[in-house]
Simulated scan of single mutants.
Amino acid sequence: MSAILTGIIPVAPTIFHDDESLDLDGQRRVVDFLVDSKVDALCILANYSEQFSLEDDERRRVIDATLEQAAGRVPVMVTTSHYSARVAARRTREAAEAGARLAMLMPPFFGATMSVGEDLVLDYFATVAEQSAIDIMVQDAPLSTTPLSVALLARLATEIPQVKYVKVEVPRAAAKIRALRTIAGADLPGVFDGEEGVTLIPDLHAGAIGTMASCTIPDVLGEVVRRFGSGDIDGATRAWNAVLPLIHFENRQCGLQAAKALLKEGGVIASDRVRAPLAPLPASTRAELLALADRARASVLGWAR
């Protein structure tokens, strides 16, 4: 079994040209930026990667380009969520065959009304696990209408050995993380938070071992987790507080467009295009984001210069 990952696992955006076609050269440059940022792994094809706007063939091309560019320098996580257990299992198997270290999936849901009961959630993840040997992260996100109780997450980890990770990004994340650490214990060692790290310090106090944020400040958040883990709680808290205005603005005012805007501003990518019907950031929002990033001395702004 692979060692449990800790630290920072940023979500890499899917890079497009201005005409919304894939920019795989830009995708590769994002990988290099993240490796230079000393990330512990990277994640592709997540919601923040606009996975919902990609065709299956485009998914495969992004996976291949990312794994080829990573070249074993960092582990790669592939998001393989789909309502269909059959499709999710195939996606996970293909990701494993391509070289992914682990897969992340939300529980099955569709729209605002189609959710799935607990036993069917268990069956879903069991089906995925049967077709691949890689570890699985369950994504506990507010986007899903299928609830994941602490008891269900603990049951998934107990009954499906490949479920070793969970990403908790729901309101009151710290309380849920603390309960998971108590109830699931060693069966679920890889507890991460999300939401750009906006509640990272409370979540680390609760027992999280890492964070899944965007590409905005991966080096800083990685250092926060490492300092906290080494016992330098005050230093970790100071480092987090210093960038919290930027994190909060990204989380509450920008969304997934923020990382692309900063990657473009720093010359990592040529276009910050998002696929319609998503829209670019308003000029005023973008200006505020850049000012906060400059104030935080975000390395993304200088990496390519």
Results as ranks from 00 to 15, higher is better:
Val170Arg: 00
Gly207Ile: 07
Gly210Lys: 03
Ala270Asn: 15
Ala298Pro: 03
Met212Asn: 06
Ala206Phe: 02
Ala213Met: 08
Arg275Lys: 14
Val225Phe: 08
Asp203Tyr: 00
Leu278Asp: 03
Val225Asp: 03
Phe192Met: 05
Ala293Phe: 02
Ser214Asp: 13
Gly266Val: 01
Ala242Gly: 02
Arg286Asn: 06
Arg178Tyr: 10
Ser230Arg: 14
Leu188Gly: 05
Thr216Gly: 06
Asn241His: 15
Gly207Phe: 04
Val168His: 01
Leu246Arg: 08
Lys176Arg: 12
Ala291His: 13
Lys167Ser: 00
Glu195Pro: 01
Val300Glu: 08
Asp219Tyr: 03
Gly197Arg: 06
Glu169Met: 09
Pro277Gly: 07
Ile233Leu: 13
Arg226Val: 11
Arg227Leu: 13
Pro245Tyr: 07
Lys164Pro: 00
Glu250Gly: 05
Ala279Leu: 14
Ala283Leu: 12
Gly302Asp: 11
Leu301Trp: 11
Thr237Arg: 11
Pro218Tyr: 12
Ala173Lys: 06
Gly235Arg: 05
Ala258Cys: 10
Val170Phe: 01
Lys176Phe: 12
Glu265Asp: 09
Val268Lys: 01
Glu196Thr: 06
Ala293His: 06
Val225His: 00
Arg295Ser: 14
Lys260Phe: 00
Arg178His: 10
Val224Pro: 10
Lys260Trp: 07
Met212Phe: 00
Val243Thr: 06
Ile183Glu: 13
Arg238Pro: 08
Met212Pro: 01
Leu292Tyr: 05
Thr216Phe: 14
Gly302Cys: 03
Leu180Glu: 02
Ser271His: 11
Glu288Pro: 04
Leu221Ser: 01
Leu290Arg: 03
Leu188Ile: 13
Gly222Cys: 13
Trp240Thr: 10
Val243Met: 09
Arg297Pro: 04
Ala276Gly: 12
Ala239Met: 12
Arg238Ile: 11
Ala186Arg: 15
Leu281Arg: 01
Ala242Cys: 09
Glu223Tyr: 05
Arg178Cys: 07
Arg181Trp: 07
Val300Phe: 09
Ala175Val: 06
Ser214Phe: 05
Gly229Arg: 06
Glu250Gln: 14
Val220Ile: 15
Ala276His: 15
Asp193Gly: 13
Leu246Val: 08
Arg275Asp: 04
Ala279Tyr: 03
Leu221Asn: 03
Arg275Tyr: 03
Ala175Trp: 02
Val166Trp: 00
Pro202Glu: 00
Ala261Met: 04
Ala206Tyr: 00
Glu196Asp: 10
Leu256Tyr: 05
Glu195Ile: 15
Leu256His: 14
Ala174Thr: 01
Asp232Pro: 11
Arg172Met: 10
Val274Leu: 14
Gly231Pro: 11
Cys215Ser: 12
Asn241Met: 11
Glu169Asp: 04
Gly266Asp: 07
Ala179Gly: 11
Leu301Ala: 07
Ile177Gln: 04
Ala259Pro: 00
Pro189Ser: 04
Ala270Met: 08
Asp272Ser: 10
Arg286Val: 04
Asp203Trp: 01
Pro202Tyr: 07
Ala236Leu: 10
Val220Asn: 09
Leu188Val: 12
Gly190Leu: 08
Ala293Trp: 00
Thr237Gly: 06
Pro282Trp: 13
Gly210Met: 01
Pro277Phe: 04
Pro277Met: 01
Arg172His: 14
Leu289Lys: 03
Arg227Lys: 12
Cys254Met: 14
Ile183Cys: 09
Leu246Gly: 05
